[in-house]
Amino acid sequence: MNQLHFRRNRRLRNTDTLRKMVRETVLRKEDFIYPIFVVEGENIKNPVASMPGVYQLSLDHFEKEIDEVVSLGIPSVILFGVPNEKDTVGSQAYAEEGIVQRATRLAKECHPNLVVIADTCLCQYTDHGHCGVVEDGYVVNDASLELLTKAAVSQAKAGADIIAPSNMMDGFVAAIRQGLDEAGFVNIPIMSYAVKYASSYYGPFRDAAHSSPQSGDRKTYQMDSANRLEALREAEADVEEGADFLIVKPALSYLDIMRDVKNNFTLPVVAYNVSGEYSMIKAAAQNGWINEQEIVLETLTSMKRAGADLIMTYHAKDAARWLEGK
């Protein structure tokens, strides 16, 4: 054996302290953005059946929720609205008293330092469930941009710190950037859903947001899950149009795409750990098949290792507790 020459990589794994000292990727509670679904009415806390632990919240319960988020040291939330009334043009998305606008004002009144991100789309607000204006069964691009820009400006006026357009129309970042600038919001950043695939992992979210298309699908505007180079074209367009963050959605099955985006662009990259990814872990944990804490932390760490600077995740509250040893 004395004549063997080989590397002893295990030397750096001998103790827990040593392993932590040489750890390459560190997951922090400050990395998390927590998604919240807000609804109209009072004393409403509707559990989302397909997303254990996630609720639709009226504003009175929403206030308690953000109190908890802040107490856990999570720096940011992203708001999704579920309105009582829907129409063909999603008018509640840009209404001054829309549910996201009201929730934004409340959040900033209660916790001025909490970073409030407004999801900017139309699908939750339209009676047809698509992310833009529908004509003859097709989601038309340019007319949709006008409404999305109105929504973004309305959200900024309500106090949103970041606008996060998720619609995947061509030119949506350019249109929203111009609209925000003309309205005097030159310092409000855009967190673009730059790389958003037409994915089956969104199913539980559509239950929570009541946003399923009433006809057809979203494949004419969301990306084909088989494509890789297309993601770079989409991200490049958004960078050129003025995006400040680049979201990759979904995250877990697209870690290769996340690394490509990180390697090719210098903007902060955001992973969206989507509803289907969350629900699969929850279901397996409830059946006793996995250790939920270990699986969640490993999964979120994999997203950071792949290049994510921030992570939108429904696991945020639990993960923050676990990272603090609670």
Rank of each mutant, 00 (worst) to 15 (best):
Y278V: 02
I257R: 02
D244Q: 07
P268Y: 07
I247M: 15
D318G: 03
K262T: 03
L252W: 06
A237V: 10
D244S: 10
N287T: 00
D309I: 09
T301D: 02
K304E: 02
V274T: 12
Q286H: 10
L232H: 09
A308F: 05
E240R: 13
D238R: 01
A285L: 04
Y278A: 10
E234K: 13
I247P: 06
R305D: 03
P268Q: 11
D309R: 05
K249F: 07
I311S: 09
E294S: 14
G307T: 12
A285W: 08
A283K: 09
L246F: 04
P268A: 04
G242P: 00
M303C: 15
V248M: 06
A320R: 03
E294Q: 14
A237I: 09
D238S: 03
R305S: 07
L255Q: 15
L267G: 02
E277K: 02
A283N: 12
V274S: 08
N264M: 08
L232S: 12
K249N: 11
N264R: 14
E298S: 14
A320G: 06
Y314I: 01
E236W: 06
M280D: 12
Q286V: 00
L232M: 13
V269M: 07
V274C: 13
M303I: 04
L252G: 07
N273D: 14
I311H: 08
A283P: 00
R321D: 02
I295R: 07
D318Q: 14
